[in-house]
Computed example of a mutant assay.
Amino acid sequence: MITRRQFISHSCMATSALMLPNALFAEETKSAYKMGLQLFTIRDAMAKDPFATIKQVAALGYEDTETYGFDPKTVSYYGLKAKDFLGLLSDHGLTTTSGHYDLFRYFNAPEAELMAYVDQCIIGAGILKQPYITWPWLDPNNRSIEQFKQLAPKLNRIGERIKKAGLGFAYHNHNFEFIDHGGINGYEIIMKETDPDLVKLQIDLYWVMRASKLSPAALFSMQPGRFVMWHIKDMDKVTQDYTELGNGSIDYTKILPDKDLAGMEYYYLEQGGNFKKSSMESIAESAAFFKKNLAKYFR
Rank of each mutant, 00 (worst) to 15 (best):
M235G: 05
K200T: 09
D195R: 03
K237Y: 00
R157A: 11
T239F: 08
L167I: 10
E188C: 02
N142M: 02
D241Y: 00
I162C: 09
R157W: 00
L151Y: 08
F176I: 13
L155T: 05
L219S: 08
I232C: 02
A218D: 15
L155N: 02
Q202S: 12
G225W: 08
Y187K: 03
K233H: 02
N156C: 08
N142A: 03
Q223Y: 14
Q147L: 03
D197Y: 06
S144P: 01
M229N: 15
F148A: 04
W230P: 00
R143H: 07
Y242P: 01
H181R: 13
L151T: 11
I189C: 08
K164L: 11
Q202K: 12
K200E: 12
H172N: 03
M229S: 11
E188V: 06
P136V: 12
S212L: 10
K154G: 03
Q147P: 02
R143G: 02
D204I: 11
A165T: 12
G159I: 14
S144F: 11
K192D: 14
D197G: 15
D197C: 04
Q150V: 06
K164M: 09
P224T: 06
V228R: 01
A217M: 03
T194L: 08
Y171R: 04
L214M: 15
L155Q: 04
H174Y: 08
